[in-house]
Computed example of a mutant assay.
Amino acid sequence: MGPRILRSIAVLRAAFTPGEYDIVHAQDCISANAVDRCVRTIHHLDQFTTPELAACHEKAIVRPFAHLCVSAAVAREVHEGWGLSPTVIPNGVDAARFATAVPSGAHGRYILAVGGIEPRKGSIELLEAYGKLTGLTLVIAGGETLFDYRDYRAEWETKAAELGVKPIVLGPVDHDVLPGLVAGAAVFAFPSTKEGFGLAAMEALAAGVPVVTRDLPVLREVFGDTVLYGTDPSSLAVALRDAVDHPSPSRAAAGRALAAAHTWRAAAERHADFYRTLL
């Protein structure tokens, strides 16, 4: 995994001309390492055991001259770990794109998870929660990352066989297909172990779909009472069942309003104001 990431950094660095820009803004640790001095949005913090990746992660935090986070919870983590004080600018969401989507009926009554199969997404715990449910299909959308999760994927497949369940794994989903897939779900599952904001879950709220997330401080901050929470496979299963069997119109309305309040225009304007303070 380390050499693959290092190659990606080298390719990006070779193609980049930093002198042509007043401000360079990196959204991830790979681009932050490639462009060196920059503004960095730290979406969430990872923990790596591979020396090369740990060094890349560290450099992508300490080397940038200005820092942003998309939630106060992650900003606190950065402050506690490195003594930095990032400015918080939440993400936006294209709420209308999901609010007006025609629900897909391709998979019957289904639980949808977006983001692929990987440790940070809590994929195995979601699988275990799904094993406790009946009458629903688990659908997973999303492609691969630069990180090598083949061992985790093999463990996930072994667990599925042990549980006797057969989720539908779609892989990457076209941009125009995703809103209908989200809107057609009976419930959206978001059991991530680490998140910076939870954009995929916010898109589900925009579509009026009930959402179940892991009970993390950052997700409590962003979503409040608009979603249901779980902490382990058993409580996630209970929350998923409750969301499907007892949908709450008031929670759905609050979720739609929350998503609509997070516009990309507002996020862009706040970024522009932030850049002006640097210039």
Rank of each mutant, 00 (worst) to 15 (best):
V218W: 11
A268L: 11
L178I: 08
G230A: 08
S250W: 12
R13C: 04
S248F: 00
R276G: 14
D46N: 10
D36P: 00
G184F: 04
F190H: 10
R37D: 15
I111E: 06
G208M: 11
L170D: 06
I9Y: 07
Q47T: 14
L68P: 00
Y130F: 15
P103N: 01
A34V: 01
H25F: 09
F65I: 13
G224A: 03
Y110S: 00
G105H: 09
E144D: 12
A201Q: 03
E144V: 00
V114E: 03
D273V: 13
V218Y: 12
H246V: 04
R97C: 10
L136I: 09
K121I: 02
A14H: 08
G2Y: 04
W82I: 05
L279S: 04
G131D: 00
L178Y: 06
R256H: 09
S123A: 13
V169F: 14
K166M: 13
V177T: 11
A54S: 14
E80N: 14
A272S: 13
W264G: 03
A252G: 12
L236G: 02
T87I: 09
T137P: 03
G135H: 05
L112V: 07
V24E: 07
G131N: 08
G171K: 12
G184H: 03
D176W: 13
A96W: 10
A201C: 06
A101H: 02
D215K: 11
F147Q: 06
H246S: 07
A266E: 13
F48G: 11
A257H: 04
V238T: 13
I23R: 08
A60E: 05
L53E: 02
H107T: 14
A253E: 14
F197P: 01
L163D: 11
V187W: 01
G142K: 01
D242I: 02
C69L: 06
G105V: 03
V187C: 11
P167S: 10
A183H: 05
D232S: 09
K59A: 12
L138R: 06
L205P: 09
L279G: 09
H25V: 12
G208R: 01
Y21F: 15
G184L: 07
R153H: 00
H271A: 07
S31E: 09
A160P: 10
P210G: 11
D225A: 15
I5T: 04
T137D: 08
L258K: 09
L199N: 03
A253C: 06
E157Y: 13
A201L: 03
T231E: 15
G131P: 04
V169T: 15
T263L: 01
R153M: 08
